[in-house]
Design a protein around this nucleic acid. Sequence first.
DNA 1: CTTGAGCGG
Length: 297
Amino acid sequence: MASATGSDHTPSSSPNPGSSCDDSSRTNLIINYLPQNLTESELFKMFVTIGTVTNCKIMRDFRTGYSYGFGFVNYQKADDAIRAIQTLNGLQIQNKRIKVSYARPPGEDRKETNLYVTNLPRDVTEDELTNIFSAHGNIVQMNLLKDKITGMPRGVAFVRFDKREEAMAAIEHLNGTIPHGRTNPISVKIAEEHGKQKAAYFAGWEAGRQQARPVGNVGGQPQGGMVNHGGHGGGHGGRSGGGGHYNAGLPLASRPPNAPGFVHSSGMGQVRPDKGSNSSRYNPIGMGGGYNVYNWN
DNA sequence: CTTGAGCGG
C-alpha cells in the first residue's frame, strides 16, 4: 500500500461496465435515521444525484404506513455506492442526521442484536458502557435512557451489536455481573421489539382520531381513513425496483400537520417528539469497509 | 418492565 508508484488504485475496477458485476453487497446501501416524513421520492431524488439507482425503499409499518426511519438504496455501480456513502453519510436532513452504510449480505442473522441493559449505575457514561460492551463485539448503536420528567439517567440502556453472536456473548459475559467498582449486578437481555407495534398503533390512532370520536373505539383498531397520500412518484425516473408500492392502500400516517380538521392534541398528542435529532446519542457511522463502527466526522 | 428507528422485496 505504501509504495508511491503512480498508484491509481481503482479498487473494484470495472472491466466490463455493462455486463454482470452484480455485487449487491457493494451496491446495496441501508439508510438510517431518516426523518419521519421523508418519502421514497425524496430519498430517491437525493441518491440519484450520485448515480443510477436501481432500487429505493423506505420501510414502513404494514398497517399504518408509519415509517420505521430507515430504508434501502441500491446502485447500479459499486463505485456510486461508495461515493454515496462518502457524500451523503452524516448529512443533516431536517431534524435528523442520516447514516449511509452498506446493507448486510442476505442470509445473515440480523435479529436479536439489540440489548436491553438495566440496573446500571446511575452515573454510568457512554464511555464506560462502550468500554464494557465493546469487549464482545462491534457496538453499532447505543442509547442511555433518561427520565422524561427529571432528565436523570434511569440506569437503563440499549446497546446494539453488529452481529447476533456478539450480542449473545455480551449477555453471557455481562448479565448478572457486577461492573467494576459497583455493588449491583446489571441485567443484559435481548431487547423486545414491541415498540414498533406501539408506534404503528399510535400512528394509526393519531390518524383516525380526528374523523371519528373515540366513543366506543378507544383502544380498538386504528380505523384509518384511506388517506393514501404519500408522494407516489410513480416510477422514480428509472426502474426503481418494481416493488415500489407504498403500503397497499391502507390507512396512512403521513397526514399533513396543517390538514383541515387536524386536531393537535395539546396535551399529549405528538406522534413523535423527535428528541431533537441525534444530538446526544451514540450513533457511529459505518463507512468504507462495511458496517463497522466508526465515528461521526 | 423496553428507545427511536440497524436489514426488506
